[in-house]
Design a protein around this nucleic acid. Structure first.
Length: 451
DNA sequence: TGAAATGTTGGGGCG
DNA sequence: ACGCCCCAACATTTC
């Protein structure tokens, strides 16, 4: 008897609950389906995914198995595969995005699909207020989340052997290029996790916001595709916190909880992917200036920290977390461009681009979301830059035109008056905090009046 | 996971 | 020794 392990966002063998369940059968067929909907997804994220699948295939072959690739609509592909293999069960890790839920519901209707929890530590339906409604504020959510965390998560180790039927027609993996900065795969994820735990986590609390240092875990692309499981990350974070290895471990644990917080927000309030969580800020009269948007995307706004961050994104498909908040605030609060434009650009470029986390982050910055920054909180990019890239090393790393500018002038070179070759003389816009506040206030008042 | 304005406090210089 | 002023450091308020 054969079971199908349908792989989606769980490209790993360690602590893989659906794989573990499938192994009860005599043989297991690991399958990844290249869904036509991927055509709408970002090229660089697909590249990372395909490299990840290539690595997963190698990891499986070390265990006597391999990865079967099929292309097409998941339901059609699975129906076909069940017919070919006489498989009696399909096991998959439950995924909580609106698209995934619809796809899985349809599949469950026609096929013996068994959805297994594993993407999160707590299922979105299990962390609820006493009246049964979901939390929309992070702090109480995280308190309850921690209070119901079991003593041990009982991670399931990677199986040593997987018995797989080999006689099934396989398709070729689409071509990809290896990513030198973020090599895909579970082994790489585990190396990074170790590195983070032994070298960086101690100072994570103080250094995670410093854009010029390598203080973050840089695990997000791996978590995005389940090359590392959130449960694994939480398990080691908890252990490190218990061993009192600095406050860093607790800070990191909270960052991981933010992930689950936004996963459950998108699960319970799927409309947030289309519009503002707060109805009162759903109709902000954005300026939406196309040429300013272009300057932002290209990293040519004339504000060094913004340009550094946007070029980092374009070049490597990843951006420092603090930089994400600064560029998002600049787009939304200074340029007054719809946060959804920024959200879409991030999704197009981030290796870790995830519908829940990305949407949550943008709505937080825009002030439109759950537990959002109040709308009057506006980042001053120059102050943030001076504080969190004090020597200007981050800026010089990504904006070579500014490599000769010293720390004193690099955060706001236009104030100095001297021209820099190849770099805008003035920022694309003169920041106007009052204008932003008015636009937001107006939106709120109009909503009230309309009611 | 803001910034800036305003208020409060306390140490030190000075007559 | 004392009051006065200055100002940095910190706290509070406001948007």
């Amino acid at each position: 008897m054969t079971a199908i392990w349908w792989i989606r966002r769980d490209l790993r063998l360690t602590d893989n609950a659906p794989l573990h369940s499938a192994l009860q059968a005599d043989s297991v067929l690991p399958v990844f389906i290249i869904d036509p909907i991927f055509d709408l997804s970002s090229a660089r994220r697909k590249n990372f995914l395909y490299e990840g699948l290539h690595v997963l295939d190698k990891d499986l072959r070390e265990r006597g198995s391999y990865l079967l690739i099929r292309k097409g609509k998941p339901l059609d592909v699975l129906k076909q595969l069940v017919a070919e293999t006489k498989a009696e069960g399909i096991f998959a890790e439950e995924d909580f995005t609106p698209y995934a839920r619809k796809r899985d519901l349809e599949t469950e209707h026609h096929l013996p699909l068994h959805l297994v929890s594993g993407q999160t530590v707590h299922h979105p339906n299990t962390v609820l207020k006493s009246d049964g409604t979901p939390y929309t504020v992070y702090t109480p959510y995280s308190k309850v989340w921690k209070s119901i965390l079991p003593e041990k998560l009982n991670l399931v180790p990677a199986p040593e052997n997987i018995n797989t039927p080999f006689e099934i027609a396989n398709e070729k993996l689409p071509p990809f290029k290896t990513n030198p900065l973020f090599p895909a795969g579970e082994k790489e994820a585990l190396v990074r996790l170790e590195e983070f735990l032994f070298r960086k986590i101690h100072s994570y609390g103080e250094e995670r916001n410093r854009m010029d240092l390598d203080g973050t875990s840089s695990l997000s692309p791996y978590l995005r595709f389940g090359m590392l499981g959130l449960r694994q990350a939480v398990s080691v974070a908890r252990q490190a916190a218990a061993e009192k290895r600095g406050v860093g471990a607790e800070v990191w644990l909270n960052e991981l909880i933010w992930r689950e917080f936004y996963i459950q927000i998108l699960y319970h309030f799927p409309y947030v992917s289309k519009t503002s969580f707060k109805p009162s800020l759903a109709n902000i009269p954005w300026r939406n200036d196309e040429s300013e948007f272009q300057a932002w995307k290209d990293g040519k706004t004339g504000v060094p920290v913004i340009d550094a961050a946007m070029r980092q994104l374009k070049e490597i498909g990843w951006m420092h977390n603090r930089a994400r908040m600064i560029v998002a605030s600049y787009l939304v609060k200074d340029l007054l461009i719809d946060w959804r434009w920024g959200e879409a650009w991030f999704m197009e470029n981030l290796l870790d681009g995830d519908p829940a986390a990305n949407n949550g982050g943008w709505q937080w910055t825009a002030g439109t979301g759950t537990d959002a920054a109040p709308y009057f909180r506006i980042f001053n990019p120059v102050l943030q830059s001076a504080k969190l890239d004090p020597n200007g090393d981050y800026i010089r790393r990504w904006v070579p035109e500014l490599s000769g500018v010293d720390a004193k002038d690099i955060h706001a070179p236009w104030k100095n008056g001297s021209k820099i070759k190849g770099y805008p003389e003035h920022p694309v816009i003169e920041r106007d905090k009052e204008r932003t506040l008015q636009v937001y206030r107006l939106s709120k008042e109009e909503m009230k009046a309309w009611k």
